[in-house]
Design a protein around this nucleic acid. Structure first.
Length: 289
DNA sequence: AAAGCGTGGAC
DNA sequence: TGTCCAAGCTT
């Protein structure tokens, strides 16, 4: 793995996508919104909601002043609507603790609701040019292959993995930030999960996995996510009904969305507990205000 | 620490 | 068609 930096950085300079939350024109708030939306969600599906979100709430204070239910409605079909709630809570915290400005320090970012290690590092790096290890699923896969010689990384990041990423991080802030986004982009565009295009990879000649003949994944089975009949599906149905209604919806409309009563009631309870749904009187439900 | 949490596109 | 997967976080 002798110097990976130059080929990856050169490749990035030529092949990088021009995304709205990238580059000098993007505000830290724009980066922050994008990172929330991109958690477990492909870039293509984030583009339109991201633009609409920033048009409606150009600053954290604008979002913080809106009802949480409006954030949930605006989130639309992005999935994992609790992210909308957490983004709202994070915006509120930014207003209360940081004067309305997205903080640039990792520790301050990490303390925000819905912000974990990845998101804190990403915002610090992409919005403020700070030097941080940014270990997302793309970067982990690139390193697993290029250095580890295996097709997929482990379920959770290991200490060794983090140490490797730290060693590979360029010493100066600006290059480190570019390296972070470049390795992510390489994983997203070339070193993909399904069908990597090793012929287009700038570090193919140094890749341990390719050198070994691209051996098939040989680790523990990775569990798929069940869907049909799950609470997730039930909750999704209920949320869709509420999003598509202008005001409160009658209980009968919720029943129509999910006839089985035990599961429906359980999901309704959990949605209320999560703050995604508000009971209105005895007979109807609405997005929270 | 393992499981729960949405959604839709690609193959 | 069903399965896999997509810039994770929380409990």
């Amino acid at each position: 793995m002798s110097d990976l930096h130059a080929p990856v950085l050169d490749w990035y300079a030529e092949h990088r996508r021009d995304l709205p939350w990238r580059g000098a024109g993007a505000s830290p708030w724009s980066v922050m919104v994008s990172e929330f939306m991109l958690q477990q969600t492909p870039v293509a599906r984030v583009l339109a909601p991201h633009a609409a979100w920033l048009a409606r709430w150009p600053t954290p204070a604008d979002l913080a002043a809106a009802p949480t239910g409006e954030a949930v409605r605006m989130w639309g079909r992005l999935g994992y609507p609790r992210r909308a709630l957490r983004l709202h809570a994070a915006a509120t915290a930014v207003v209360e603790r940081h004067g309305g400005e997205v903080p640039d320090a990792y520790a301050d970012l990490l303390a925000l609701p819905g912000v974990g290690d990845y998101t804190a590092s990403a915002i610090a790096s992409f919005a403020f040019g700070r030097r941080h290890v940014v270990l997302d699923t793309n970067v982990r896969r690139v390193f697993a292959r290029a250095v580890g010689g295996v097709e997929f990384p482990t379920t959770a990041p290991t200490k060794a993995e983090r140490e490797l990423a730290t060693e590979l991080l360029p010493p100066d802030d600006a290059t480190a930030a570019t390296w972070a986004v470049a390795t992510m982009e390489l994983g997203a565009l070339v070193c993909t999960a399904r069908s990597p295009e090793c012929g287009a990879c700038p570090i193919a000649d140094r890749c341990a996995w390719l050198r070994a003949g691209r051996p098939a994944y040989d680790g523990p089975p990775r569990r798929g996510q069940a869907w049909q009949g799950t609470d997730r599906q039930c909750r999704g149905r209920i949320m869709a009904v509420l999003r598509d209604a202008e005001g409160p919806v009658h209980a009968a409309d919720v029943v129509a969305a999910w006839p089985e009563s035990t599961q429906r009631e359980r999901c309704l309870e959990s949605l209320v507990a999560d703050g995604l749904v508000a009971r209105v009187g005895d007979e109807s439900y609405a997005l929270p205000s």
